[in-house]
Amino acid sequence: METILTIRKLNKRFNKYVHAVKDVSFEIHRGNVYGILGPNGSGKSTTLGIVLNVVNKTSGDFEWFGGKVATHDALKKVGAIIERPNFYPYMTAKENLELVCKIKGTSFEKVDEKLDLVGLLERKNDKFRTYSLGMKQRLAIASALLNDPEILILDEPTNGLDPQGIRQIRDIIKVIASQGTTILLASHLLDEVEKVCSHVVVLRKGEMLYQGTVHNMLDQNSFFELQASDLSQLKSVLSNHAEIDRLEEQDGKLLVYPKKEMAASELNAYLFQNNIVLEHLVKRKNSLEEQFLELTNNN
């Protein structure tokens, strides 16, 4: 699979105390949708800033498209939106996009098409400063797509938007993803990442905690949710089971984490042999959110 971006042992120190990115390495392959997860201050934006040429790295390496072109030329084939939309407030949407075309060295022909895609065609001759935040954000997406980029990088694209705005952005992202564009999405909104992304990178305090497919991350821990009339009896029986890692009580239910994959029927049979009849048995996996919180808290 073609590699779009390779990051090797990237480090960024802002000063003696702030080590924002620590030895982060990962690869972005064509056609996948990646999510970068991490709490505030985990180094997501800094990492993106480094590969986008606006933050200087302290050490380490990154290369775009196999390192054949200079970073700034590679960025002409990248569409990126970071944090907030940055445009010239005194220019109209159309003029702003034309300026981006000039920077990227392409013709103006796609300007209208992309404005249409994000639903701003009717407002194209209005000044940027008259736009609402949602419209600004959509214009930023139009701008990032101007060159039909190889990869779209989105850093918190729904930050500060109202529910309709979030929905609009999310729909646009889905359309783009369905067209086969590689996407790198940094976000807090985990259900968003879970719905859209195929791969995730998890960062905390500048360190990479996990890298892989969303599927694998969710598969790691499946667990059981049990309920019986006598919870303490259930607990004592289960603590004798050799395959059980740990137990947790939550809202009158017992969460059972097995050491390795276990069938629900197997657990049920074991309890039945020990004279416990369950009122409630669910085998489930952590949602990405729970998985993420566990990963970032426990390490």
Binding site: V54, K76, N86
Partner: peptide, 21 residues
């Protein structure tokens, strides 16, 4: 100074202008 206040310096670089350019 506007390039800094509007954040467009950052955006220009991301869009593919090099610092030298």
């Amino acid at each position: 100074a506007n390039e800094y206040t509007y954040g467009t310096l950052k955006q220009n670089l991301i869009d593919g202008l090099s610092k030298k350019e």
